[in-house]
Simulated scan of single mutants.
Amino acid sequence: MKSVILNTVSKTLLPLLILFSVFVLLRGHYLPGGGFIGGLIAAVAFILHAFANGLTETRKLLRIHPGFLIPVGLLLAVISALAPILVTGEPLMTGLWHDKDIAILGKIGSALFFDTGVYLVVIGVCLTIIFTISESV
């Protein structure tokens, strides 16, 4: 699609949508939100960029194949789910929290790492599906 307006808007919205998706991810272990919704917002940002600028430009922007994010996210989610069993002997997916607050993030715990894994998986799956469909058309 060759639209000056869409091209300009997509380049402006991409960083804002990515920032908003990270915000939704980080607030997700305290309030509604989290990895799934944050991942969808980030995927929509890249899909909008692909519609406006073409798939090759978006692939250059990503630098890695989105399918690589899927196993990385799954590994992070599984490790964070198993950490309570391995570290403290607690049941699966019990929340582990760091004692001290960290600026901007607040308390860091296993829920944040699980949400981050989900975030990466959702981005990887959505972009892989959309890019595969776009390549075949």
Rank of each mutant, 00 (worst) to 15 (best):
G35E: 01
L17C: 01
G33N: 02
S21V: 08
P32V: 07
T8G: 14
L40N: 01
L25E: 04
L26K: 12
V24N: 08
G38N: 02
A42I: 08
S10K: 03
F23N: 01
V22A: 12
G34T: 08
L17H: 01
G28K: 08
I18Y: 04
L40I: 12
V44A: 15
G33S: 02
G39W: 08
I37F: 11
L13A: 10
V24G: 05
S10M: 02
G34A: 06
L25D: 12
R27Y: 03
A45H: 14
T12R: 10
L17P: 00
I41F: 12
A42H: 04
L26V: 13
L19Y: 06
L31F: 15
S10Y: 05
K11G: 13
I5N: 10
P15Y: 08
K2G: 11
P32A: 03
I18G: 10
Y30N: 08
I18M: 09
L6S: 13
V24K: 04
V24I: 14
R27K: 12
S3P: 03
A43D: 07
L17R: 00
G33F: 11
S10V: 05
K2Q: 11
F20L: 14
F20V: 11
G34W: 01
T12Q: 11
A42Y: 06
V4F: 14
R27C: 04
V22F: 13
L13E: 01
G35F: 08
F20A: 12
G28E: 07
T8V: 13
Y30V: 13
R27L: 02
G39R: 07
L31S: 15
G34I: 11
G39I: 10
V22P: 06
L16D: 03
G39D: 10
L14R: 09
G28W: 04
L13R: 03
Y30K: 13
P32T: 01
T8S: 14
P15H: 06
A45S: 02
I18D: 09
N7I: 12
L13N: 06
L19T: 14
G28H: 08
G33Q: 09
T8L: 15
V9N: 07
K2P: 02
S21F: 02
L6R: 13
L19R: 00
L17N: 09
F20Y: 13
V4M: 11
F36P: 03
G28N: 05
A45F: 11
A43E: 07
K11E: 15
F36E: 00
L17Q: 08
T8A: 15
R27W: 02
A42Q: 05
S21H: 03
V24T: 09
L13Q: 06
G39M: 06
G35W: 04
R27A: 00
L14Y: 09
I41P: 00
F36W: 13
A42R: 04
G34R: 02
I37V: 15
S3Y: 03
G33D: 03
T8M: 15
P32I: 00
L31C: 07
F20N: 12
V4R: 09
L6Q: 13
L17K: 06
N7E: 15
I41A: 04
A43S: 11
F23L: 12
L13D: 00
